[in-house]
Design a binder for these strands. Structure first.
Length: 378
DNA sequence: ATGTAC
């Protein structure tokens, strides 16, 4: 049986072990398995501090929603989707009718032809998935700025209530996976034998991720006949950086020190753009999303009993979810995630971030909508 | 989250 978090910010310190701090209020439920994973990470050689974000949940090997500072570089603590992040682009549309716009989204499972990207500096050796969104929690969402919560900051970003924005959550696809696998095949969960070489490959995946998010935004803007602005934020939440002579690993945690970050809600609830001002105790980081409340398999099993496909495709806030994959629709159901307001509230309570604006989904693209098959289910 | 194996 795992422990539960009883204090609002509980830390443990042993002479040879790293500190673990979880930034969640006592009312916020955090799965004990995820806290156990933080302590397992804290026991690794060289580990100095583990900061759990309020969206902390169990991951494969390492917790998701954590910043981990160590004197040793562990590729597994960044995971396979190196450079995954969230960008927000202002986008100007003539008419905003979700039903019509949903049908005009491009197929973001189909890569772009690099020949169609003249003058683009494409990281070497990996072009076959450029412009694709991937699966899992990735999405491309047309959203409306809902509430302005910090007027001065929103104005500096050029955001006003009622504006439309395009939120792109995606990563480095097969490239990051390949980089991690080439490490684990030789060293397993152990440290990087050649940190500089890992970081060079990592940086390429980060660049690829940024480029991929921009390409997708341009594809969507083209298909919708919309004008796309420069991103107001584009921040990775799976990364490693050298900091004060140590390695700061982030897995499902965004840089949160002087950074504006879009913290994603769910496909059917709001998201929040926040100004991060997290210190060393929080690993200079903020949360990256609502955080899973249920495993994918639980969400699938319980979702099938609780929801119809129709209500997941047309959400409570009136948005449309483009997703031809029924299983993914259930796995990503809003109910499979924590309440984003709780996550944001925890960040505010611990003075890690200040909300700037909230956004409400209009159309969320997950994966191509399948054409109905005659006589069959889809 | 991913490519790949089942």
């Amino acid at each position: 049986m795992g422990r539960s978090i009883l204090s609002s910010q509980h830390s443990t310190q042993q002479s040879t072990r790293a500190t673990v701090t979880v930034f969640a209020e006592s009312g916020s439920w955090i799965e004990s398995d995820a806290v156990d994973q933080c302590h397992q990470v804290a026991a690794l050689d060289g580990m100095i501090h583990v900061a759990g974000m309020p969206d902390l949940h169990p991951g494969k090997g390492a917790p998701i929603g954590a910043a981990m500072l160590s004197s040793v570089l562990y590729p597994l603590l960044v995971g396979s989707d190196i450079g995954c992040g969230i960008a927000v682009f202002p986008i100007r549309l003539k008419r905003v009718v979700p039903e019509r716009l949903a049908g005009r989204f491009p197929d973001l499972d189909e890569p772009v032809d690099p020949a169609d990207l003249p003058g683009t500096d494409i990281p070497a050796g990996y072009t076959d998935q450029l412009g694709t969104v991937g699966r899992g929690n990735h999405f491309v969402e047309l959203a409306r700025v809902d509430e302005v919560l910090d007027g001065g900051h929103a104005e500096r970003l050029g955001l006003t209530a009622g504006d439309t924005v395009l939120i792109v959550h995606s990563g480095s696809r097969g490239l990051g996976e390949r980089i991690l696998r080439s490490h684990t095949e030789v060293h397993g969960a152990g440290p990087a034998a050649d940190p500089a070489a890992y970081l060079a490959a990592h940086d390429e995946a980060v660049r690829w991720g940024h480029l991929n998010r921009r390409i997708m935004a341009e594809r969507v803007a083209d298909a919708l006949g919309a004008e796309l602005g420069e991103p107001v934020t584009d921040v990775c939440h799976n990364s490693a950086e050298v900091r004060g002579g140590h390695y700061l690993h982030r897995k499902g945690a965004a840089p949160g020190d002087g950074t504006d970050v879009l913290i994603a809600g769910t496909r059917g609830t709001r998201s929040f753009l926040v100004a991060g001002h997290a210190g060393a105790g929080a690993g200079h980081s903020v949360a990256h999303g609502a955080g899973r409340k249920m495993s994918r398999s639980d969400a699938l099993r319980r979702g099938r009993a609780k929801h119809t496909v129709e209500e997941l495709r047309r959400t409570a806030v009136g948005s449309i979810v483009v997703c031809g994959d029924r299983q993914l629709l259930f796995e990503e159901a809003p109910g499979a995630y924590k309440r984003i307001e709780q996550v944001i509230g925890d960040l505010v309570a611990h003075r890690l971030a200040t909300p700037v604006v909230s956004t409400v989904p209009l159309v969320t693209y997950k994966t191509a909508d399948l054409a109905p098959r005659k006589g069959g289910r889809r």
